[in-house]
Every structure is written in C-alpha cells, then in structure tokens.
C-alpha cells in the first residue's frame, strides 16, 4: 500500500529513544527509535535477545506485567504520548499486539477466541467482522467449534491474528509469526498479512527473525542488535546491503571465507538516532 513517496506518508507510531529496564536492573533496550507509517509494513529484525519483543511490548505496554519499565524516551501514537496507557486503552486507540508463540486461549473454541478480540468494542459490529476474519482465514471457519488448544500451530497463529483483527485495529504489532511453522505456512501467513495491509489498510510493525521472508513482505526495516538500532532503510535496500546479506541472510559475494577473516562488526553503529 505504500508507494515510493514515503516521506509524505502520515506517521502513526513514533518511538523515540526508549530505554527499557527489567526488574529495575536489567537494561534491555538502550535507546531504540523507530517510526511506523500509516499503511505500511515495518519490519523489526535481529537475532535472539536483540530486543524485538521488548520493543513491541514497550509499545503495547504489556511490559508492566513482566516487571519491565520504560525509563527513558517517549512513545507517541498519532502524536499523543501513550507510554502510560494501559493495553486496554491502546486497543481502543487501535494498537493491538499479537504475541510471540500465539497465546491462544487454549480451552476456548476458535470462535470464542476470535470473539474475545472484540472485547473492547461497543459498536456491535463484531458479528460482521467475524465473517471478514473467516474470509481471510477460511481454515478457521472449518475449525471454529474446536478448542484452540487442539488446533495446529498454523491455525493457532491464524487464530491469534484473527483475534487481533476483531478489535478493528489500525496498527498490529505482530511478534514472530513464523515461529515454529513450516516454510509453506510461513508464506501463507505472510501472504495474508500483506493482503490485510493492502485491502483493510492495517499497518503492521513486524518483529521477525526470519529476515529473508520479512524483507520480502515489508516496506521498511530496522535491524536491532543488543538493544540498539544498528541499521535501517527501505526493505529493498536492506535486502541488497552486503552486511545484511552476510550476517542475516547467510549469503556473501566473496564466496566461502575462513572464519578468521570475518571481521565481526563491520556494521555502522548508531548510538543515537
């Protein structure tokens, strides 16, 4: 949905230089800044423990229940500070997170799971949206009466995304949708994400370890490492960047090298952005 003229696009979410501390002592994010434009798919990439999930949870404010805290910086949604909003207020404002590892309500049926997504809504349009979700995820319709705990990993991921859709969100924070899924299913799910982005106009902030897939579907990307943004740019550029190719896509122009020759950190570090 995003065209090349990215500059003119309205900014939905703006994260400015945030620092997150768990349990008062463990510094996890050391100044992360990013923006999510309206109608775009923004990817947040990086390895294990880079701080992707923490960044998403800082935005959706699910950090609080895990004893994490944003100690510096600001988070703004549509220009309003939202760092102190509860998750439920954020959902009402249109920001909802799909957590890593699906987190479906195991003992509820698929349909009941989807209906919990409409919890904050007062407009009574949930029934119509249920059909919309079933349109995007026909598999869920087949399994709507089964307990979510007994459905497959792919179906659970679809259920989690569908559940978020039921809140009629403007922005979905999607955490690691590819986790534990077969490559074919990953393609299917990313295809649906792209569809939702184009047809329903939902903006995505996508945390993903699978750099290859994420950069193919996203418009813009940020690369996180040890709690800092080390690189950012349009997805197409990142895909061609030699460092990204080498470190995240496992490709190299120079052929196989001895491990001795790999200078570990050639990447340009940005301490503040």
């Amino acid at each position: 949905m995003l065209d090349s003229g990215e500059q003119s696009v309205e900014t939905l979410l703006e994260v400015n230089n945030i620092e997150v501390i768990y349990n008062h002592v463990i510094l996890v994010l050391k100044g992360v800044s990013l923006t999510v434009p309206k109608g775009g798919i923004t990817a947040l990439l990086g390895g294990n423990g880079a701080g992707k999930t923490t960044t998403l949870k800082a935005i959706s404010n699910l950090l609080h229940s895990e004893r994490g805290e944003v100690t510096k910086g600001s988070i703004e949604y549509r220009g309003e500070p939202v760092a102190d909003s509860s998750p439920s207020e954020l959902v009402k404002k249109g920001v909802i997170q799909v957590m890593e590892g699906r987190h479906c309500f195991e003992h509820l049926t698929i349909e009941e799971n989807l209906m919990t997504g409409a919890y904050t809504r007062r407009d009574g349009g949930a029934a119509a949206d249920l059909e919309m979700v079933y349109n995007y995820f026909p598999r869920l319709k087949e399994r709507r009466k089964s307990q979510a705990g007994y459905t497959s990993g792919g179906e659970q991921q679809m259920c989690a995304i569908g559940r978020a859709l039921m809140s009629r969100p403007e922005t979905i924070l999607l955490d690691e949708p590819s986790m534990g899924l077969a490559p074919q299913l990953v393609e299917e799910i990313f295809g649906i994400v792209k569809n939702l982005n184009e047809k329903e106009g939902v903006s995505f902030l996508l945390a993903e370890q699978n750099t290859n897939v994420a950069l193919r579907f996203a418009h813009h990307g940020y690369i996180l490492e040890s709690g800092r943004v080390v690189m950012e740019g349009p997805a197409a550029e990142l895909r061609e960047n030699p460092d990204v190719k080498e470190f995240y896509l496992g490709m190299s122009d120079e052929g196989r090298k001895s491990f001795r020759d790999v200078r570990s950190y050639r990447r340009r570090k940005r301490w503040l952005s």
């Binding site: 509860s86 439920s88 959902v91 957590m99 479906c104 003992h107 209906m115 997504g117 919890y119």
Partner: peptide, 24 residues
C-alpha cells in the same frame, strides 16, 4: 456472556487477555 468469556480467557492466559484489551 461477553464478561464470562473474558473471565475464561483470563483463566487461560493472563498475558494474552491483556493483549486483547481485557482489563485484568
């Protein structure tokens, strides 16, 4: 009921319930 469903959701998974906007 909606609140009853939310109650069961909370029983299943606190974090996920929070994430869909249910107030614990």
């Amino acid at each position: 009921t909606k609140q009853g469903r939310a109650m069961r959701a909370v029983a299943d998974d606190h974090q996920a319930a929070l994430s869909v906007g249910i107030s614990l």
